[in-house]
């Protein structure tokens, strides 16, 4: 990775941690086990942990579990070669034991890529359901476990009964269970209920995070999500196409905010509680596209095709995380887009 991109990540971590990292002190000299450890979430957790170690002497170690650790070694050798990071090659469904000295677990295995949900629905469901059960069975035997963070999905909120500007943690809507589009959110819902059952039966200290949308370094522009496509098209000078009326409202969180929030939820989240993870600041897709075009300085146009009306809103409410954990967004949307463009330009050059 280019030095300037690494410096950018370090500055991002510095910004979210701030001058006093005491809020994360519980992680000092502790070991964190991360499933899905080489994906987008796992990579950012690793970046933030090595920042804490390098700049604040945290002495935190990481075990990253993933099916393809070789790809991680190639993509991020600066992380893979760190002595405090251990890579384990395995499928989460096949876990039997966890290292006895694990103190924290972040369960991030399962792709949010909806193309995979459609093409391999059985494998996706099994990874989420059996993978979660297998992990929790193994976690139940740990003597020094402090907390487990189960990463669920904002999609579990399903269809909301009435239009609201933001979705609170108790606003669980309906999911049609007889369609292929429910494979991922329904499995995630089941996994949350499974966590509640383990919390109840085994008194496992489990906290849940419900991620919404993110954009920034370590994401892939080939993902089938609107903002990723906007950036890719802008960087290749292709028109930015929006099929709808451009009015769907979404929000985007920068990944350094995401990683910091996740670690805070891990160490300070209330056991049994679910927290929204995302920016509470909604923006229409039309406005996102216009901002991307402006910041990318592209000759491409934003084309609103008006093929179907869509006024949907998918934005988390942050009242709970703000009032109980004191978490706020550090990177606003304009800065999120500028940094993302800077990162992806660098990635394109490579």
């Amino acid at each position: 990775m280019d030095n300037h991109l690494r410096e950018m990540i370090t500055a991002d971590c510095q910004e979210v941690v701030g001058p006093s990292p005491e809020a994360l002190d519980k992680l000092r000299n502790r070991q964190v086990f991360v499933t899905g450890g080489t994906g987008f979430v796992g990579t950012w957790i690793a970046e933030l942990v090595i920042f804490l170690n390098d700049h604040h002497n945290f002495g935190t170690s990481l075990i990253l579990l993933a099916r393809d650790i070789d790809a991680f070694r190639i993509k991020t050798p600066h992380l893979a070669e760190r002595k405090e990071i251990r890579l384990l090659s395995s499928d989460v469904r096949n876990i039997i034991d966890l290292p006895a000295d694990v103190n924290y677990i972040i369960h991030a295995a399962a792709t949010p890529d909806n193309r995979q949900h459609m093409s391999t629905p059985l494998a996706v469901m099994e990874t989420i359901t059996r993978g979660t059960a297998t992990l929790l069975d193994a976690a139940a035997t740990l003597q020094s476990l402090s907390a487990i963070l189960n990463i669920s999905s904002g999609q579990i909120y399903g269809r909301q009964c009435c239009a609201t500007p933001t979705i609170t943690e108790d606003a669980v809507g309906s999911l049609p269970c007889n369609t292929i589009t429910s494979v991922y959110p329904e499995a995630k819902r089941y996994a949350e209920t499974l966590c509640s059952a383990y919390w109840s039966c085994c008194k496992l200290p489990i906290v849940t995070a419900r991620p919404f949308a993110f954009i920034g370094p370590y994401q892939s522009l080939d993902k089938p999500w609107a903002i990723n496509n906007f950036i890719r098209d802008a960087l290749t000078d292709n028109d930015i196409r929006i099929i709808s009326n451009g009015m769907p409202v979404r929000s985007y969180m920068y990944p350094s905010d995401m990683a910091y929030w996740l670690l805070r939820m891990l160490v300070d989240g209330a056991s049994g509680q679910a927290y929204n993870l995302g920016s509470p600041y909604g923006i229409t897709l039309r406005d996102v596209a216009e901002k991307v075009k402006a910041y990318a300085n592209t000759t491409a146009e934003v084309v609103i095709k008006q093929m179907h009306p869509d006024n949907s809103v998918f934005v988390p409410d942050n009242g709970l995380v703000s009032s109980t954990l004191g978490l706020e967004i550090k990177v606003p949307i304009d800065e999120t887009l500028k940094r993302s463009l800077r990162w992806f330009r660098g990635a394109f050059r490579r």
Partner: peptide
């Protein structure tokens, strides 16, 4: 519809 939803998820614009 089931098949069309897959295409939509893959990125088909129609």
């Amino acid at each position: 519809l089931d098949e069309a939803l897959k295409m939509q998820a893959y990125g088909a614009e129609a």
